[in-house]
């Protein structure tokens, strides 16, 4: 008989605890959610670069590379904001070939035959003034926005 009473008391005690502190937890939740949303919103506002026209220029040994499309026109520089479908382009560097991936407002070196693979490790770049370099192959991909004020270093 005693055991039943005790086990009945335990879930009640837990319920009482939560009920008693209900408003405290509500306050905690509101403050946590409020702080994180304000923080996320502020970061999003600062991320203006996604709204700008971003252009990527592929340079080979300092010169703009000729990358021809079906009509024989040079696709390079690429206006990344006008690309809607994912595309891949193969180019020939100094020693190996490279595969460049293009998607909306972003560019990446998807594959490269170079030994260091630093260019591949850069991944998708969607911010201006954040170049992708494959020194081994003499390839330099310059990414610019209309307003050149966003710079990434590190």
């Amino acid at each position: 008989m005693e055991k039943e009473e005790i086990t009945q008391q335990k879930p009640e005690k837990k319920k009482n605890f939560i009920l008693k502190h209900l408003w405290d937890f509500v306050l905690l939740g509101v403050l946590l959610v409020g702080t994180t949303t304000a923080y996320v919103a502020r970061s999003a506002i600062n991320n203006k670069s996604k709204d700008l026209d971003i252009t990527a220029t592929v340079l080979y040994e300092g010169n703009v590379m000729e990358i021809k499309d079906e009509h024989g026109k040079n696709k390079n520089p690429f206006i990344l904001s006008s690309i809607n479908e994912y595309q891949e382009i193969e180019i020939q560097g100094r020693h190996t070939t490279l595969t460049i991936g293009l998607k909306h407002n972003a560019i990446a070196v998807v594959h490269s035959g170079c030994p260091g693979q630093e260019c591949v490790h850069e991944g998708w770049v969607d911010r201006p003034n954040h170049p992708i370099v494959c020194a081994h192959n003499g390839i330099y991909i310059e990414i610019e926005s209309d307003n050149w004020s966003d710079i990434t270093i590190g």
Partner: peptide
Amino acid sequence: KIFTPVGNSIAGAY
């Protein structure tokens, strides 16, 4: 008074 000392402390800390 709907807040217990826990709520008070949370508000104070924030």
